[in-house]
Each structure stands twice: as structure tokens, then as C-alpha cells.
């Protein structure tokens, strides 16, 4: 194997399975920083990560609100995966690895937060909303806005798929679970975590 091939293989592994190289406390520190920075960047464009896989442009809120949303999403998924890990894993595993790798797995949403920054997204969304509600459009949009919005939406879709793939890899590596049992429990966890995070964010944050 040439050095170039080895380097590109390692790069692919870092992109799609970084948990092969980093887990535990290191992953937790990096992941936590990413979650908080994503929340901070999201706050600039009022982009809410208001559910495990949700990204919505919404009302202006204080910074802590955006940060708390990201933390709730991460914790809901982590707690469920730890429970499933204890039930079905035949290996002993460290909770810190599940917590850390799940935090790191959310890094594609940092790119999503950046993609949602341009004002063009807000203008196009307001325009679409006015069309749906049949109100007179309060904003005008140009082709460049539509292009930026389209690009952001494609990126959002790709980053969501990537994040889910990373969350699965993180679960498989940190709990040493493979095959159908891993896939089924992961899908169940995603569904439950999505519902739980939505519920918690609406019940505790929105009501404040």
C-alpha cells in the first residue's frame, strides 16, 4: 500500500468512523465544544436544533436557549443508547465512551449551523411562509437567495444523514454491538430520542 493510499484511507476513517481513533473524555471535550459552538452560531441566525434531528429557523431567544437545545438533543440520545447498550451488549463498556462519542457524532451540525447563517435563508423562508399563508410577501427574494437557500437545504440533508451515520458508528464502537440488534436498537433510540427531545424542549424551554 502506498503512503498516499494509507493517508486517504485514514482520512476516510476519520470522516466516517473517527471513534476508531478517539473516544472517551477526549471525544467528550471536542464534542461538547462542537455542540456549544453550533448553538452559538445557530443563535446568530435564530436556527434552532429543537429535536434530535431537527433544524428550524424560528424566534429570537437568549443564547442559553440555543445551547440548551443542543445539550438536550445529545443527552436524550445518549441516555437511550446507554440503556440499550446495557440490555444487549455482551461486552462491558464505559459510559464515558458512549457520552463522548455521541457528542462528537454531532459535528456535522456545526456545518449546518454555518450553512444557515446567510440572511438569504431567512428571506426565502419568510417568502415561502407568506405564499403558504396567502399573505402579501413582506420580503422580496432574488435568484441568488434561492440558490443559497437550495444549497443550504442540500447541505442540511447531507449533514443529517452523515450525523445519523456517525451516531450509529459511535454506538456500535462504544457498546461493541453489531448486526441486526445494533440497527434495530439504534432506530428505536432515534425515534424515541426525537420524541423525547422535542417534548423536553417544548415542556421546559419554550414554556420558560
Amino acid at each position: 500500500m502506498t503512503e498516499d493510499t494509507a493517508n486517504s484511507n485514514r482520512l476516510i476513517l476519520w470522516l466516517f468512523n473517527p471513534f476508531r481513533f478517539v473516544a472517551g473524555f477526549h471525544a467528550l471535550l471536542i464534542g461538547l465544544a462542537i455542540i456549544l459552538i453550533s448553538g452559538l452560531i445557530g443563535s446568530f441566525s435564530n436556527t434552532h436544533f429543537d429535536g434530535l434531528l431537527d433544524v428550524h429557523t424560528g424566534a429570537a431567544k437568549p443564547l442559553w436557549f440555543f445551547l440548551a437545545e443542543g445539550l438536550i438533543d445529545w443527552m436524550c440520545m445518549t441516555v437511550l443508547l446507554i440503556i440499550f447498550g446495557f440490555i444487549i451488549s455482551r461486552s462491558s463498556f464505559r459510559i464515558i465512551d458512549v457520552i463522548g462519542t455521541q457528542a462528537l457524532a454531532r459535528w456535522p451540525y456545526l456545518i449546518t449551523a454555518l450553512a444557515m447563517l446567510p440572511n438569504a435563508n431567512r428571506r426565502v423562508l419568510e417568502y415561502i411562509l407568506s405564499k403558504v399563508t396567502q399573505a402579501a410577501p413582506a420580503v422580496t427574494i432574488n435568484p441568488a437567495d434561492v440558490f443559497v437557500f437550495g444549497f443550504a437545504m442540500i447541505l442540511l440533508l447531507l449533514m443529517t444523514i452523515w450525523m445519523v451515520a456517525l451516531m450509529y458508528r459511535a454506538y456500535a464502537v462504544s457498546c461493541n454491538i453489531k448486526g441486526a440488534r445494533a440497527v434495530v436498537t439504534f432506530i428505536v433510540s432515534v425515534i424515541l430520542a426525537e420524541a423525547l427531545s422535542l417534548l423536553l424542549i417544548r415542556a421546559f424551554l419554550v414554556s420558560l
Binding site: F19, A23, G24, S91, F93, D97, V173, N176
Partner: peptide
Amino acid sequence: LGLSYPTVRNRLD
């Protein structure tokens, strides 16, 4: 080995 703890533990398992 330059690998993460769970990767090494999984290999041992």
C-alpha cells in the same frame, strides 16, 4: 496502537 479505548477493547473481545 494509536486507537481509541473501545476499539482496542472490542478487538480484545
